[in-house]
Design a protein around this nucleic acid. Sequence first.
DNA 1: CGAGATTCATGTGAAGTATACCTTTAGGCTTAA
DNA 2: AAGCCTAAAGGTATACTTCACATGAATCTCGTA
Length: 403
Amino acid sequence: MGVAVENIFEEYLSKRPIFSNKDILSIKYKPDNIPHREEQISTVAKILAPCLRKENPSNIFIYGKTGTGKSLSANYVCKQLSNISEKKDIPLKIIYLNCKMGKVADTEYRLIAQLSREFGKEVPATGLPTSEVYKIFYELIDEKEVITLLVLDEIDRLLDKCGDEVLYNLTRINQELENAKLNIIGISNDVTFINNLDPRVRSSLNEEEVVFPPYDALQIKDILKERAEDAFNNGVVSESVISKCAAYAAREHGDARRALDLLRVAGELAERTGKDKIEEEDVDLAEEKIEKESIEEVIEKLPKQSQAVLYAALLLLKNRENKEPVYTGEIYDVYKSVCIRTSSKPLTQRRVSDLIAELDMLGIINAKVISKGRYGRTREILLCMSKEILENVNKMLKSNLGL
DNA sequence: CGAGATTCATGTGAAGTATACCTTTAGGCTTAA
DNA sequence: AAGCCTAAAGGTATACTTCACATGAATCTCGTA
């Protein structure tokens, strides 16, 4: 036994590694060069430039689908800006917050609390009146004469969870401040978001608008090539592998993040199977694996009750032949029996209805409100994952719930 | 036969409740002079 | 007397429940051609 394991390690070390620097393919990696976004970047930079003369720049609204380089470009410009401001001793503070569900900034209170924390003041997670937290924040920000740029990523999530009050307050904050100035860069992948806003907020948030169009397959290829150069050892990736990744990603509204994930996971798979280069079939395997993992990751983090609801839904959907939908009522019944089996108290149908809507938002299931005429009104729930993933998720939920 | 009323099953909004946690305040205990 | 700790009071956010009303197309009803 010991010998066999030893052999694995020996063999691993003797092979020429696939990656020379895997981090370059990670989503967190911030390249110095962002291909095919020159125009957007310079637009944003021009809008923000007045910061450097201590003038208030316009608020910016950035939108584009996922994986079009929005956050990356925004961060890039901000980084450059803060470099210069530091060098020239210009007071400037940049805060980046993600408003995605479950993150630190997904409600009014949490957002303002997090902002205060960014200024170095600990704020409790609950218990304080929201107005109190606003007060803390106002005082913190107004302490010095600083221009603050607030980057709100996935700002649309913030809106549909707690309305536009926060944004209204934030866009108006400059009128209350003596010394400091606050500007907002909103990033959204929902274009319609801006239309659901209170007109006053809309006009002030939307002073400048920057659109990030999806990449086409060729552009994605460029991006991949550039990163692959440094991420892999020579001769590991072929042109055709990159083309394949690009093609798969372009198929999904030109999502560069996905393309990078594909390439990275394909590399990992090749490495694990002991190959010294990535083959096209690895890309196919990678695609499967990514889909599986990203769904499982989301589900794993779900609260128990949501998991139970999802489990009930999947149980029903599993037995449905080709794409027959399932309805809220049926799910609720199964959910209740799941609760009895796990001896936990079932939530009300009202709440379950909301949970189902949330699962839909997370993209785990596909729920749509429909009217069945005489037979009432309900959500029609469809599956949006493949059979194998379903099996896996099902198993996972089962053990998570203790069944 | 077709316009309008009816109906069902659940969506959805508002208000209330439980829980967990926060700050403030006042009392009680300790301590050191 | 000053300092420190504790517990109660008074307050909030969040997740959930309760109540009540809203929805919207299939189906029914009934007057009319």
